[in-house]
């Protein structure tokens, strides 16, 4: 039989070293993302630092973020107040540190929820097709017609800007985007011969979806998640800036900028600090998203 003859010669001779180096598990993917490019490394470092700061906020913030002091109004940066103080004499650095909690939780929570629901909807529509697809697609189209910011303002104005209200609103607003991407990717993956092979092998439908479809559409979903994280941070800042997001005196980057704006001619430091923090985090998350896509996508993988 064939086996005897095949073992006669060194098979390993024929598998190129390049191919062997290609053996990648999940750990390797993560490692590749982090150690890939300098820009990615920096972005990763930045995001980690911000998350650590947010987690440790009560312990590392030098002052209570809401304590006012009439004696310390509108101070410029000094050894006591690294980013100065605002019009109520509150320490801007402490407010920034505490504010990162609201901003980041926002930034991460709604995109994760939206990715979850959107993937369920999109994969169902794409895989089952027919009436299921039509129903889901029409609902998604309807939701897509609303600009997410407008939707958020609407609900926040009607129900009040509580934390969970805004998370729910943004989740609803982001879900259609994920559903669309998941549907399109599912339609593409469904055409792959290995899906037909799984059906022919007798694999049940739920297993086909979880084992063969979902892992293969993960890349675009993850990228979209990072994009929406950045948007979500922006939207929270916008809502807070407009006064319907995080309610004062609780700090978030958005309302720090808002407070700073009305006091712009006395001190510029709150605006600069808030603006820079948002810019840096949004940029870092976007860069990270790009790298994740490059590594996950077999087409562009190095």
């Amino acid at each position: 039989m064939t086996d005897a003859r095949l073992s006669d010669f060194p098979v390993d001779d024929l598998i190129s070293r390049e191919a062997l180096a290609d053996e990648r598990g999940l750990g390797d993917v993560v490692r590749q993302v982090i150690f890939g490019r300098i820009s990615t490394q920096v972005a990763f470092f930045v995001v980690v630092v911000f998350i650590v700061v947010a987690i440790l906020a009560p312990w590392i913030a030098p002052y209570d973020p809401v304590r006012q002091s009439i004696l310390q109004i509108n101070k410029h940066p000094s050894w006591d107040h690294w980013l100065g103080t605002d019009q109520f004499g509150r320490d801007v650095l402490s407010r920034m540190i505490h504010g990162s909690r609201n901003s980041l939780i926002f930034g991460l929570l709604s995109p994760v929820f939206a990715a979850f629901f959107g993937t369920i909807l999109g994969v169902s529509a794409g895989y089952f097709g027919g009436i299921v697809d039509r129903l889901i697609s029409r609902i998604v189209d309807m939701l897509m017609a609303f600009p997410e910011l407008l939707l958020a303002i609407l609900i926040a104005a009607a129900l009040g800007g509580s934390f969970w209200n805004i998370v729910v609103v943004l989740t609803v607003a982001f879900t259609p985007g994920f559903a669309r991407v998941a549907r399109a990717s599912t339609l593409a993956v469904k055409q792959e011969p290995y899906i037909e092979a799984a059906v022919a092998a007798g694999v049940s439908t739920p297993l086909i979806i979880f084992r063969h479809i979902v892992p293969n559409i993960a890349a675009p979903i993850v990228v979209l998640m990072t994009l929406w994280s950045a948007s979500s941070i922006r939207i929270e800042a916008t809502l807070s800036f407009l006064g319907i997001g995080t309610q004062p005196p609780n700090p978030s980057w958005g309302n720090i900028i808002r407070d700073g704006l009305s006091n712009m001619f006395a001190t510029q430091w709150p605006i600069v600090a808030g603006g820079l923090a948002i810019t840096i985090v949004v940029l870092a998350i976007s860069i990270l998203g790009d790298s994740v896509r490059d590594v996950l996508d077999p087409e562009t993988a190095r």
């Binding site: 011969p193 290995y194 037909e196 799984a198 022919a200 892992p215 293969n216």
Partner: peptide, 16 residues
């Protein structure tokens, strides 16, 4: 009843 496919590249899931 089982099947062997034409495309040796596409018919094996690349991630498994």
């Amino acid at each position: 009843m089982q099947m062997v496919f034409q495309d040796p590249f596409g018919s094996l899931s690349p991630r498994r």
